[in-house]
């Protein structure tokens, strides 16, 4: 038996928003530690890795590991039936082929139950080594969102350069070129507004803005975002989900031909 209850449907709605543009179907892997999901987009350029530890739930029970194969669009439709303040419970039998969503209104006067069929999903799990990166940039999530959106109006590719001066985002296209520079401002009082750059050596990498714009759909989940970069390796974009998990995106770089 798997059963997990979260106090606010809003959180699960935000998680789905952050996944649904990249992934059509995914296995939600449930263990006694919590729920995780790893899936690549269909072109194998990017990957999303979600972790929601059990301590983030009001109630959590998972008698044995279970993978819930879920069509993300179907789950999104069901979650739209919940109010943001509703409590949500997910329930699945060990050998069952459905997952049940129960929504309870804050005043407990309304209870809705939706049953969704599970799918058999043949997913390729990738082994992703935890590693130290050459440069990291922590910035307000809304700032990163704005930069990706603004530079998309200029070109398809962004060059991210980290130097002692700061971090520079550059896009160029037929109509011209745009450059946005952020400087370290770790002295700003409010932590969520800080730009904190760590760097072992200068580097410059290029990425497809199309995918970065998908990643910024997670902006509602966290105040800040951290970009981790190493030359010629995939970029890691991480949004922390309070203190109980994260959503991480990996994006393969564009490499000079």
């Amino acid at each position: 038996m798997f059963e997990a209850r979260m106090a606010q449907a809003a959180l699960l709605k935000k998680v789905l928003e952050a996944v649904k543009d990249l992934v059509t179907d995914a296995n939600w892997d449930c263990t006694s530690a919590g729920i995780s999901l790893q899936a690549m987009d269909s072109s194998h350029v990017s990957l999303v890795s979600l972790l929601m530890r059990k301590d983030g739930f009001d109630m959590y029970r998972c008698d044995r590991p279970i993978s819930l194969g879920i069509n993300i669009a179907s789950m999104t439709k069901i979650m739209k039936c919940a109010n943001n303040n509703d409590a949500v419970t997910l329930r699945a039998e060990d050998e069952g082929d459905t997952v049940v969503f129960t929504f309870e209104s804050a005043d407990q006067e309304k209870v809705s139950e939706f049953e969704m069929k599970l799918m058999d999903i043949d997913s390729e799990h990738l082994g992703i080594p935890e590693r130290e990166h050459t440069a990291t940039v922590k910035m307000p999530a809304s700032e990163f969102h704005g930069i990706c959106r603004d530079l998309s109006t200029i070109g398809e590719t962004v060059q991210v350069s980290v130097t002692k001066e700061g971090v520079q985002f550059t896009a160029s296209g037929d109509t011209g070129k745009g450059t946005i520079t952020l400087r370290n401002n770790s002295s700003v009082d409010e932590e969520s507004q800080q730009v904190v750059i760590t760097m072992q050596e200068e580097l410059s990498l290029s990425f497809a803005l199309r995918y970065l714009n998908f990643f910024t759909k997670a902006t509602a989940l966290a105040d800040s975002v951290t970009l981790s970069m190493t030359a010629d390796l995939p970029l890691v974009v991480e949004y922390r989900i309070e203190d109980t998990g994260y959503i991480r995106y990996f994006l393969a770089p564009k490499i000079d031909d």
Partner: peptide, 14 residues
Amino acid sequence: KAKQASLMSFFSKK
């Protein structure tokens, strides 16, 4: 011109 790399060339299948 820069070419889009695949994630599969960086991470191995489990």
